[in-house]
Each structure stands twice: as structure tokens, then as C-alpha cells.
Design a protein around this nucleic acid. Structure first.
Lengths: 361, 361
DNA sequence: CCAGAAACTGTTACCGTTCACAAATAAGCA
DNA sequence: TGCTTATTTGTGAACGGTAACAGTTTCTGG
């Protein structure tokens, strides 16, 4: 073995200063900045300048570097960048693990806006909206170094948990009903409820019944408030509220009771899914919509126009809400910290279809 | 100024070896390992051992370190860890930016399973499923250093784009219909279609019509295949397929044509939303479901039981699909690379409700 | 009571990028 | 031309962890 030791520097054993570079893990590593620099005949710093579009690089040099990058299929390592800059260009979303139409649509609105701004989005969902799980979700995001957090936060537990995020962390809530002195983007739920209720009143109904969502959700409560307010203002009787979950099952259950009562001629539902359940309950009772009973919803889900009959409902643009939330967050990212970014409240609009009409009498 | 220069080493100006540490950016930095180590009176490596639950740390030492961590509110910097280990403990999801029920539910299934395994999930959505945007989405995830990718991939463009991911990257597709020699988790669409079609045939219908989804989606195609196969096997006439998007509007449009044809007594829809549209079309034509026309769907969305009438449909458990996909991905993460992980195919089951019945005649 | 093994802890060198500063080169002007 | 000022490039040293190895204890058992 010792016979061939004469070969010069190509034998690593003869280079005591450079111990053979051990392949760290099984995973083969792509090319890094140093490789690109060597190939282009420049320093790694120049490569860095090129990818960060620093102006002071000679055009000819930039070209050479770009060519090297291309030929090596170079991808910059974001983890290293994050470590050096303390900026991950990743945003966190605290979501609610369920199939509610609103939250999901927001996610896409947020993500596409984030992409446009050069951010990636990480999601941490929680099974229920109590304090503990939300806190853990936030923590998970923080550990992963997100630059900011958007909470799809229909309940106060979420925002209060968010106040435990580290000081510098920018946070925005979307949805809910804007409590807690927290920058929030939301639709004006009370206004939506007022529009819907007034619409039914104007049609000639003596009063309007309401099937609410879970009352510990500020959004559900705000809709109740708007509905009640409008009834008061019109001098109409305010019937008792029945509340339940946001789904058709709940709507069906409450709807059956309502449908049995012949004095009920108009029902405002806290969302479209509830309305679907009410529609079925009314139908089963033998009364007709809208002839005997008018029904309106809230949300304007994609298929609400194909219910039987097509549902009149309050429209809210969730994707837009998501975009606005992201814009707000991005604006706050630069700011010093404890400033006062105003809330964004978008107005809902009514989308009349055929599930509501004048009462028969 | 020079008068007080006699104070010993507390004056940084007298310590030429340690230049005053400049506060890097405006963002205040939390405590790091070094701080914890100093407070606990150990080396940073010991702190590292404690958070990584290395067995060889004396209980008393561990306690001290943990106390220090707690008192400093220490959070480990995942970016640094990622840089050192080449493992981000982040998974990427390539999603489809739309409000399709299936993909969304999968997201939650995946996320909760990922959380349990100690992974965070980042999403990159694409507006349309053509090659280019998908490629960019994958690239975005790769740059951010995800350890693996799950593609919610109903169309082949997605999986083919995925083959451009770097060599070591583990990938799994969920949904679609398992082409491309790619590890896939999916429901057996053809089987679901067979069950639904056979169910209607067994009820006594002479044949079954089909309103398909977009035929360039393998899932839609597989359902067409299963339906057609069953009809052939039963010796029934195979009516022409009408196809459209996955929504109620498409169902309504095709449904109107079908409803006008008195020979149509049974319709199998490619999903529940399409079925909703068909339901309305049949209703408007004056014919009744299920008395005159039977309708069945596919998916079993949460509110399908509240359609008019409640929809008989093929059930698929999307959340479960998501979990299975994640499990498969995790298993592949450890493996050498080009092995052969088998696909997972879960069987759908039929959920009969009241929208299908024996034909009248 | 001491050698050897096992358990524990510390030291140093990376991971791949950006930052601050220094050096070299090109340009502008008297 | 020679000097000053821009522009372009290069050189360490962070950033906050983990890996490998070396050093120090503390147990064993003969």
C-alpha cells in the first residue's frame, strides 16, 4: 500500500491541512454559493449580490454569475438566509380545523397574496378554539421562525392567545368581530344582518325570525345584534333566538320548530348551511318557500344559487378578506411595533335570489 | 474621560479582544442557546443535548438547564437547526386554489397528522393545474427547504411537475387516479362509480345516466369508466356522457337536458355539488326526485344529507386520505430514494339516503 | 485500591448565507 | 497627469444551532 504514496497532491492522505470532506448525511447536497462563485470566478459575496439584485455589479459579471447558477441549477438555501437576516419570508396562519366555508376561502386569498409578496405560508390548525391548543399552534409557528401571523380567528380565545406571541411578532386577525385592540380585518356582520332583516321587513313581513350560529362566536353574536336592532327600529316583535352550530343539521333542527309555527313567515339564517337545513325543514312541513315562508342566508357560498329555491343571501368575499388581511400584516411588518394600525371593515352586500318574497296574506 | 480608565475588566473599552457586540437589526433578539448555557453554568452543547433529549445528561443538570430555559423563555431557532442538520421538519403541500370540498378536507387531515409527527406544513397553491405554475409552486417549497412534498394532485400535470423536484426529495400524491409511477394515496373512484351505478340498476332502472366532471381529471375519468363498465356488464344501454366543471352550475346545465328526456330515470353525478344542480333542474322540470328520477352523488359532503331530497351518495373520507398520504410520505422520508413504495387505495362506501328509489312504472 | 469501562461534559469545526468593512479598479475633473 | 470620488469586488466574521471528538468524571469489579 505504501508503494504508491509518491503521487502528489491529488492524494488526500498527503494533505494534512484538508482532511477529506466527509459526506455529512446520506442526502446529497445541491450546489451552494461557493460552487457558483468558483465556477464564475468571483467571490461568494458577488454571487450574493447578484441574487439579491444589488445594483453595483458590473453587467458582464452578473451575466457570468447567472450563467453559473443556471448551469449548476443553484437554489439559495433559505435556512441560511433566515439565520443571517432574521427574516424567514414565511408567514404563519392559525386556522380552524373544520370544513367551514369561510375560513377555507380566506386561506387561498391569503396564500395567493403572500406569494405575490414573496412569502410562503405555513398553517397550524387547531381542533377546537380553546386557549391551550391555540397557544401551542402559535408557538409552533414562532419556533419555525415565521415573520408574522394571521389568525383566522372567529373566537376571542384565539386573539388572546396571540397576545402571548413574542413582542416583535406582527399579528393580524381576520374574521371574528374585531375585539381585543388587535388589528383585524372583517366583514361588518351587524350591517349584513341589518340589510337582510330590513329586506324581509320591506317585503312586508310583520317580523323576522333568526336562526343563529353559536353565540360564543362574535360573528354569530354580531349578526344577532344587527337583526334585533333592525327589528327594534321597525317596532317589530323580537322573537326568541335559537342558536346552534354552523351547519345544516342545526338549521334543520331549529327549522322544524319554526316551520310548525304558522306565524313564522320570514327566517334570517346566520349562514347558508343553516339556511339549507331550514329550507328542508320548511319543505317537509308542507309549507312552501318563498310563498309561505321566506328564508335568507349569510355567506353566499358558491352553490347557494342552486338550493331549492335559490337562496337570497348576504354576500361576503372571503378571498378579498384574506388579501386585505395579508396587506395589513405586510404593512405592519415594517412598523416599529406598538403602533396603531386601524382595523379594516368591509361592507357586505345583499344578493337577492328567489327564496324570499312578500308574505301571502 | 481618561480619569476613570482604571476600572478593571468591566469596561468594554479595555477589552480589545471583544469589540462591543453591535445589535444587529432593530428586531430584538430572544435568548439563544449560549444565554441558557451561561445561566445554567454549562456548555451550549449540553443545552443542545437537553432539548434533543439525549439520554446521557445527568438529571440534576437537565433540571438546571430546563429551569434556565424556562426563565429565559428560550425557543430554539429552527433555521439554525435546519442549516446544521439539513432537515427542516417542514412539509410542503401543493394545493389547488379553489373551493373544492375534497382538497380542503385533505389539507386538514394532513396538517393534523403532520403536527402529531412534529412537522409543520407549508402550502403553495396554484391557480390552474398547468405545468408552469405547478413547477413554480414546487420550486418555492424546495427553496424553503421542505423535507418532503404532498401534492393534492388531481391532474397529471402536477405529478409530472413533481418529477422535477430535486433527487432526494420525497414526494407523495393524494387524489387523482394513481398514474406516473408515483406513490399515491387515493380512493378507488372506479369502484365507487360501480357501486353507485349498480345500486341504481338493482333498484330496477333500465339504465343510468352520468353527469361527469371535467374529463381531463383522472378522477372524473375513472368514475366514467366505472359507470360504463357496470352498464356494459349488466347489458344496459350506455347513454352519452355529459361533462362539465365540478359545481352545481354545471350540474344544473346538464341536468336540464336530462330532465326533459322522459326516458331518463336515474342519474349518477360525479360529485355532490353537481348532484345539487341536477336536483334543482329536475325539480324545475316538474318531475320529482326520487319518484320520477333517482339521483346519486359522490363525495358525501357534510350537508348532502340536507339536500331536497337528502342525497344518496358515495362516501369518501378525505381527512383519512390526508392522514394516509402523510403516513406514506413519512415512511418514504427515511428510505434511500428510488425504492418502490406501494400505492394506497382506500375503498369508498355507499351512503344511501332518499334521493334514489325504484322507478315508477 | 486501581484499571478499565461507562457516563457525562466541553471544545472546535462546520452548515450556507448576509453584513460590515477593506481593497482594488474605474471614472471625473482641475 | 495626479488627485478625489464612485463604482465594483473581496475578506473575514457573524447568525444559532448540531456533529464529532476529546476530556473529565463516576461506576464497576477483580
Amino acid at each position: 500500500m505504501a508503494t504508491s504514496e509518491q503521487v502528489p497532491s491529488t492524494d488526500p492522505a498527503l494533505e494534512p491541512t484538508a482532511p477529506a470532506p466527509r459526506p455529512r448525511s446520506g442526502k446529497e447536497r445541491g450546489s451552494v454559493m461557493r460552487d457558483v462563485a468558483k465556477l464564475a470566478g468571483v467571490s461568494h459575496q458577488t454571487v450574493s449580490r447578484v441574487i439579491n439584485e444589488h445594483p453595483n455589479v458590473r453587467a458582464e459579471t452578473r451575466e457570468r454569475v447567472l450563467a453559473a447558477m443556471r448551469s449548476l441549477n443553484y437554489r439559495r438555501n433559505l435556512a441560511a438566509r433566515t439565520l443571517a437576516t432574521r427574516e424567514s419570508r414565511t408567514l404563519g396562519i392559525v386556522g380552524f380545523e373544520t370544513t367551514l366555508f369561510g375560513p377555507e376561502s380566506m386561506l387561498y386569498g391569503i396564500e395567493s397574496a403572500a406569494r405575490a409578496a414573496g412569502y410562503l405560508v405555513s398553517v397550524a390548525t387547531v381542533r377546537d378554539l380553546s386557549h391551550r391548543p391555540v397557544l401551542e399552534a402559535v408557538d409552533r409557528l414562532v419556533q419555525h421562525g415565521v415573520d408574522g401571523i394571521i389568525a383566522i380567528a372567529p373566537k376571542p380565545a384565539v386573539t388572546t392567545a396571540l397576545t402571548h406571541a413574542p413582542a416583535g411578532m406582527a399579528c393580524v386577525a381576520v374574521g371574528g368581530d374585531g375585539q381585543a385592540g388587535f388589528p383585524t380585518v372583517r366583514v361588518d356582520n351587524a350591517a349584513g344582518a341589518r340589510i337582510a332583516t330590513q329586506y324581509l321587513l320591506d317585503l312586508g313581513h310583520a317580523t323576522v325570525h333568526h336562526v343563529a350560529g353559536p353565540l360564543d362566536w362574535p360573528e354569530a353574536q354580531a349578526r344577532v345584534d344587527g337583526w334585533r336592532e333592525t327589528l327594534y327600529a321597525a317596532g317589530a316583535v323580537v322573537p326568541p333566538v335559537t342558536a346552534g352550530w354552523w351547519d345544516a343539521a342545526a338549521g334543520y333542527e331549529q327549522g322544524r320548530r319554526l316551520a310548525e309555527d304558522p306565524t313564522v313567515t320570514a327566517v334570517f339564517c346566520a349562514n347558508d348551511r343553516i339556511a339549507l337545513g331550514v329550507l328542508r325543514a320548511v319543505h317537509e312541513s308542507g309549507r312552501r318557500v318563498p310563498d309561505d315562508v321566506s328564508v335568507v342566508g349569510f355567506d353566499d357560498m358558491p352553490d347557494s344559487g342552486y338550493f331549492l329555491p335559490p337562496l337570497s343571501t348576504v354576500h361576503q368575499d372571503f378571498a378579498e378578506l384574506g388579501r386585505r388581511a395579508l396587506a395589513l400584516l405586510l404593512r405592519n411588518l415594517g412598523l416599529p411595533d406598538g403602533d396603531a394600525p386601524e382595523d379594516v371593515v368591509v361592507a357586505p352586500r345583499f344578493n337577492p335570489r328567489s327564496s324570499a318574497a312578500a308574505p301571502r296574506s
